[in-house]
Computed example of a mutant assay.
Amino acid sequence: MSNTPNSPKNVSPQALRQAIRQGDHKGNTSGFCPGFVQCNVAILPADWANEFLQFCQLNPKPCPLVAMSSQPGQIDMPEIAQGFDIRTDVPSYRIFRDGQFKEEVHDIQEYWRDDLVTFLLGCSFSFEEALLADGLDVRNISQGKNVPMYRSNIACKPAGRFSGDMVVSMRPFKAADAIRAIQICSRFPSVHGAPVHFGDPSLIGINDVHQPDYGDAVDIADDEVPVFWACGVTPQVALEQAKPPFCITHSPGCMVVSDLPNSRLAIM
């Protein structure tokens, strides 16, 4: 990322979005712009939008809605960031046709249509800051990796054509730190809230915690337990199953970085 300071803590959301728009940053956004809300992305045709909105409302832990387009074709979202353009300001996008992943791109201007509706969903990167502030080791950040994410067997509530199992993200902690992490994240229901499981991964359908379905594997010490949160990649699974003719999501770990402070999402 050549046009921004070397340390993520020195990068403003506006500077990071500009670097993304210019193609200078194409990777994940974990650890960047602490203090500001990061969002998962789902973009789909207007005739699918109401059902997807209902799916989010019925499944607020994996799909916590932060913002959505006020009308089809809208490319800016001034309520979350000034000068924002959904077509250029995400590091990496995934294109789906009839529920099948087709390609990953860094700009969707050529794919944009006037009937598309954008949904921005809360992201676990926002609560990672609170964990770090409490002195906890967030392993994906300390190891410079994308957070590991897995398909679980935890069923979401269906809405119209949308259904599917929850995707979860994982961070390992010692038992006492895991309890503290649960307490901290309970204050952030708008960004997935408290974990959905900790301990034996097989109980939620994960056969090998060292082989994530998305993101990167991280080290887990012998005295640590894996802790699992609902993850905003969940809508991608629902979209794959619903098979809309066309839709766009973020690539896992590559978020919208907004101008909204995380403090606005916390329950004090």
Score class of each variant (00 low, 15 high):
R17Y: 08
R17N: 08
Q18A: 15
Q18V: 04
A19S: 14
I20K: 14
I20S: 08
I20F: 11
R21I: 01
R21L: 00
Q22Y: 13
D24A: 10
H25G: 01
H25M: 02
K26I: 04
K26R: 13
N28M: 05
T29D: 06
T29G: 11
T29Y: 15
T29V: 00
S30V: 00
S30C: 06
F32S: 07
C33Q: 14
P34R: 11
G35K: 05
F36M: 02
V37R: 14
Q38L: 02
C39Y: 03
C39P: 02
C39V: 03
N40F: 01
N40D: 06
V41F: 02
V41R: 04
V41I: 12
A42Y: 00
A42I: 10
A42P: 10
I43A: 00
I43F: 03
I43C: 01
L44Y: 15
A46H: 12
A46V: 07
D47Q: 12
A49L: 15
N50I: 05
E51C: 01
E51Y: 03
F52Y: 04
L53S: 07
Q54C: 03
F55E: 05
F55N: 05
C56R: 11
Q57L: 12
Q57K: 15
N59Y: 07
N59P: 09
N59M: 02
P60M: 11
K61E: 14
P62L: 08
C63V: 02
P64F: 07
L65K: 11
L65F: 06
L65E: 09
L65C: 04
L65V: 09
V66D: 06
V66L: 13
V66C: 08
V66N: 03
V66S: 12
A67C: 04
A67W: 12
A67I: 00
A67T: 06
M68T: 05
S69T: 00
S69I: 00
S70A: 10
G73Q: 11
Q74D: 05
Q74C: 13
I75S: 11
I75H: 03
I75N: 15
I75V: 15
D76G: 02
A81R: 02
A81G: 07
G83M: 02
G83Y: 07
F84C: 08
D85K: 01
D85V: 05
D85G: 06
D85F: 06
I86M: 10
R87C: 05
R87P: 00
D89N: 13
V90T: 07
V90N: 04
P91T: 10
S92A: 15
S92N: 11
S92F: 04
I95M: 12
I95F: 12
I95N: 11
F96M: 14
F96Q: 07
R97T: 14
R97W: 10
R97L: 13
D98N: 14
G99K: 07
Q100T: 05
F101V: 12
F101P: 05
K102E: 11
